[in-house]
Design a protein around this nucleic acid. Structure first.
Lengths: 210, 210
DNA sequence: ACCTGAACACCGTTCAAGT
DNA sequence: ACCTGAACACCGTTCAAGT
């Protein structure tokens, strides 16, 4: 008992990046069982440490959740970026690409999406990293709007204001469809995609008869 | 100790409508402290019963939450109904009235709003009352769209599909503004109201230049 | 029929102690 | 510096028992 056998690499308490491992375990648990399954003791167990270890890296559960949300915004921004890279340069196509990326992300990771937009209001000001991650998403809409104005395809107006309305529509489509509030328009992936295209088309051309 | 004093009206275990009292207590706790404060034992305490009493009226916490959500949809539908009653008959004004009611409700009761749209997906099919309450809200949009088509103010198309897009926009504006994701457009009530009008105007006339 | 009190399992958090 | 194990307060749920 004096010395452990050499074969069982004593591993220095952990693989060196427990913080990251905890975030990933949290995202997994969220995906598997929803917000109720995101408990700190289970996260720790999955990361292979004791239930008290996370407190070395996060002040409390809320801080871990904020880090998970930040990761989520990063993944979302990346997905939108990839979608835009593959899209043609006309504004309608670019807006549709953003919409597909946004709504697709919500459908792939509904619990993460809910968590990202759910009740961090109060603390948000005190979480600069989280704010920055969410702004990165927003800037991409604004940039497409600005470019569209440059091409004469989008009406005049402050790009940031127009982008906010776009974001609102995307967000509404994403959340209402994952909550099942918009059936039967989203019964299949094809129907969902048609609903996305329809929404963007309507946003561009307007509900009003002219 | 044999007999309690007569003065402390023994009250028949409860005022006869514990179910309702629990729902109201839950809504209060939600408003005061968010989802984390909505705990069953506190709800029971506030309603003046033991922590086990709620189980006479609700199978579990989830069932109480569903009842709270249902009440929420009822309040929202009522607010929209009142808004529409007071609005003039042109479609733009009616859509704006709906938007003010919807977003105003979210700002008055942000935690209730979050709860209403958050993760009941799985069980939703098994909660017919909740489904019905949410449909009542939706029907009001569809009806305004239908009437607008009758007046020649709204483009052709399935009213239900058009209403879904309207709902998405409203929902996005409501949720993103209560999460503080759309500052500085919502720093004051006046700014919020301008943002609501702007959004509806954009939905009617479209982002596209013509 | 409706409610209470004790009991159980489980979670967030803390802290003294280990390496 | 980083992690463990015991401990505490608190919550959801159950159940035998009371009226």
């Amino acid at each position: 008992m004096q010395k452990p056998f050499e074969e069982a690499r004593p591993k220095p308490y952990h693989h060196g990046d427990l913080r990251n491992a905890l975030i990933e375990a949290g995202i997994e648990l969220l995906a598997e069982g929803g917000a109720a399954a995101l408990d700190l003791r289970k996260v720790a167990r999955r990361a292979g440490v004791s239930h008290a270890a996370p407190y070395r890296h996060f002040a409390d559960k809320q801080a871990l959740v904020a880090a998970i949300d930040e990761r989520g915004f990063g993944l979302l921004a990346e997905r939108i970026r990839l979608g835009l890279e593959a899209a043609p340069s006309d504004t309608a196509a670019r807006l549709t690409a953003i919409a597909r990326a946004y709504v697709g992300f919500a459908h792939d990771r509904p619990w993460l999406m809910r968590e990202m937009f759910s009740g961090l209001t109060v603390e948000r000001e005190t979480l600069p990293d989280l704010m920055a991650a969410s702004k990165d998403v927003y800037y991409q809409y604004a940039e497409v709007i600005r470019a569209g104005q440059g091409r004469g395809e989008i009406i005049d107006g402050e790009p940031a204001a127009l982008a906010s309305v776009l974001w609102s529509l995307l967000h509404g489509v994403a959340m209402l469809t994952i909550e099942g509030q918009m059936s039967p328009y989203v019964a299949t992936p094809e129907a969902l995609d048609r609903a996305i295209e329809y929404s963007i088309d309507l946003l561009i051309h307007g509900l009003g008869r002219r």
